[in-house]
Deep mutational scan, measured.
Amino acid sequence: QKEELKEKAKEAVKRGNKDKARELLKRAGISEEEAKKIIKKIE
């Protein structure tokens, strides 16, 4: 489940939808700070 949400978040970032990505990562139980780092890494 968590990995699936991370994959979806990756796709969202690639489409330029960072808010959606952050939302998905939060749903995966990832903190706001972690989510920001992950999104930065994907960009």
Rank of each mutant, 00 (worst) to 15 (best):
K14M: 14
K36W: 14
E4S: 11
I38D: 00
G16R: 03
E4P: 04
K36C: 09
A9I: 14
A35E: 01
K14T: 06
R15E: 12
K26I: 14
K41Q: 15
E23F: 02
G29L: 00
A12C: 06
G16E: 02
I38F: 14
A9D: 01
K37A: 13
E3N: 10
K6F: 15
E7R: 12
E3Q: 09
A21L: 06
L25I: 01
E23R: 06
E32N: 07
E33S: 09
E3V: 06
K40G: 09
L5Q: 03
K6A: 09
K6I: 15
D19A: 11
E11D: 09
A21M: 03
I39H: 00
L25N: 02
E32D: 13
G16T: 02
V13K: 02
A9S: 02
K18E: 06
A12P: 04
E3G: 07
L24H: 04
I42G: 03
K10D: 03
K2N: 11
K41E: 15
A28G: 05
K37E: 14
A35I: 15
L24V: 03
K20C: 12
A9M: 03
A21H: 02
E7L: 11
A12G: 01
E4Q: 10
K14Y: 09
S31D: 10
E7C: 12
K36N: 15
K37F: 08
V13Y: 10
K20W: 14
R22Q: 10
E4I: 13
E43I: 10
I38S: 01
K26D: 08
K26Y: 09
N17I: 04
K20Q: 13
E11L: 10
A12Q: 10
E33K: 09
K8D: 05
V13T: 04
K10N: 05
A9F: 06
L25K: 01
G29P: 00
I38L: 09
K2M: 15
K40T: 12
K26M: 15
E3H: 10
A12D: 02
L24Q: 02
E33I: 07
I38T: 02
E32M: 07
E3F: 07
E34R: 05
K10V: 12
E23K: 04
S31A: 06
I42R: 01
K2Y: 15
E33W: 06
E34L: 06
E32T: 06
K36E: 15
I39F: 04
K26L: 15
K36L: 14
E23T: 03
E3A: 09
K41L: 14
E32K: 07
K41N: 13
E11A: 08
E32I: 07
D19S: 08
K26N: 08
K41D: 14
E43A: 07
G29S: 02
E34F: 04
L5P: 02
K18D: 04
N17P: 01
E7M: 10
L25C: 04
G29H: 01
E4F: 13
L5E: 03
E4T: 09
N17A: 09
K6N: 06
D19V: 08
K36Q: 14
K40A: 15
K14D: 03
E7G: 04
K2L: 15
K6T: 12
R27V: 08
A21V: 03
S31R: 05
A28D: 01
Q1P: 11
K10L: 10
L24P: 01
I42A: 09
R15F: 07
A21E: 02
E4D: 12
A12R: 02
K14W: 10
I42F: 14
K36P: 01
K36I: 14
K10I: 14
E33F: 06
L24G: 01
E23G: 03
E3P: 04
R15A: 15
K40R: 11
E3L: 09
L25T: 01
K20A: 13
K6M: 15
E4H: 12
E3D: 10
I38R: 00
I30T: 02
A9W: 05
E3C: 09
R27E: 14
L24K: 02
I39Y: 03
G29I: 00
G29V: 00
I38V: 04
I30A: 05
N17Q: 13
K37I: 13
E4Y: 14
E32G: 06
K18M: 13
K40E: 15
L24E: 03
G16K: 03
G29D: 03
L5Y: 08
D19L: 09
K36S: 14
R22W: 15
E33Y: 07
R27G: 06
I42D: 03
A21I: 05
I42H: 06
K10A: 11
L5S: 03
K20V: 13
E32C: 07
G29A: 01
K20I: 12
E23D: 09
A12F: 11
I30L: 13
A21Y: 03
K26T: 10
R27P: 02
R22N: 08
E43F: 07
K40F: 13
A21F: 05
E11C: 09
K37L: 12
K36Y: 12
E34C: 13
R22Y: 15
E43D: 05
V13R: 02
N17C: 13
A9H: 02
A28R: 00
K41P: 03
K2C: 15
A12I: 04
K20R: 11
K10Q: 07
I30P: 00
N17K: 07
D19H: 07
K14N: 09
K36M: 14
K37W: 09
K18S: 09
I39T: 01
E3R: 06
E11H: 06
K2R: 11
K37Y: 10
G29R: 00
I38A: 02
S31Y: 03
I30E: 03
K37D: 14
N17T: 04
R27C: 08
Q1A: 13
K10Y: 13
E34W: 05
K18P: 11
R27A: 14
K20H: 13
G16C: 07
E43G: 05
R15Q: 14
K37P: 00
Q1N: 13
Q1Y: 14
I42S: 05
K14S: 08
R15T: 10
D19M: 10
A35C: 05
L25Q: 00
R22P: 00
E23W: 05
A35N: 00
I38M: 09
L25R: 00
K26S: 07
A35H: 02
E3K: 08
I30D: 00
S31G: 09
Q1C: 14
K40N: 13
K37S: 12
A35M: 08
D19C: 11
K14V: 08
A9N: 02
S31L: 05
A28I: 05
I42P: 01
S31H: 05
A35R: 02
R15C: 14
A21N: 00
K14P: 01
I39A: 00
K18L: 15
I39L: 08
A35V: 10
I42M: 12
E33L: 06
K36H: 13
I30H: 07
K37V: 12
Q1L: 14
E23V: 03
A9R: 00
Q1M: 14
K20M: 13
A9L: 10
G16Q: 02
K18Q: 08
A35S: 07
G16N: 05
K2S: 12
G16L: 03
E11S: 05
A28E: 03
K36D: 15
G16A: 03
K18F: 15
K40Y: 14
L5I: 08
K26E: 11
I39M: 06
E7D: 08
G29N: 03
A28P: 01
K14I: 11
E11N: 06
E43R: 04
E7S: 07
K41C: 14
K37M: 12
E32Y: 07
A28T: 03
L5A: 10
A28F: 05
K6W: 15
A21P: 00
E4N: 10
I30Y: 15
K20T: 09
A12M: 13
K18I: 15
A28S: 04
K18N: 10
Q1T: 14
K8E: 10
K14E: 08
I38P: 00
K26A: 11
A21C: 08
I39W: 02
K20D: 09
R15N: 14
E32F: 07
L5F: 07
L5D: 04
K20G: 09
N17D: 15
N17V: 02
K2G: 09
K41H: 10
E33G: 06
E33H: 08
E34T: 05
G16D: 02
Q1H: 12
L25W: 00
I42Y: 14
G29W: 01
L25S: 00
E34N: 05
S31I: 03
S31P: 09
K10R: 13
A21R: 02
A9K: 00
E34M: 07
R22G: 04
R27Q: 15
K26C: 10
K8W: 10
K8A: 13
K40V: 09
A21G: 02
K20N: 06
R15G: 07
E3M: 09
R15S: 13
K18G: 05
Q1V: 12
A35P: 00
K36F: 11
I39G: 01
R22T: 11
E7V: 06
E11M: 08
I38H: 02
K10F: 11
K18R: 10
I38C: 06
E11P: 01
E7H: 07
R15D: 10
R15Y: 08
K36V: 13
K40I: 11
V13M: 11
R15L: 11
A28C: 12
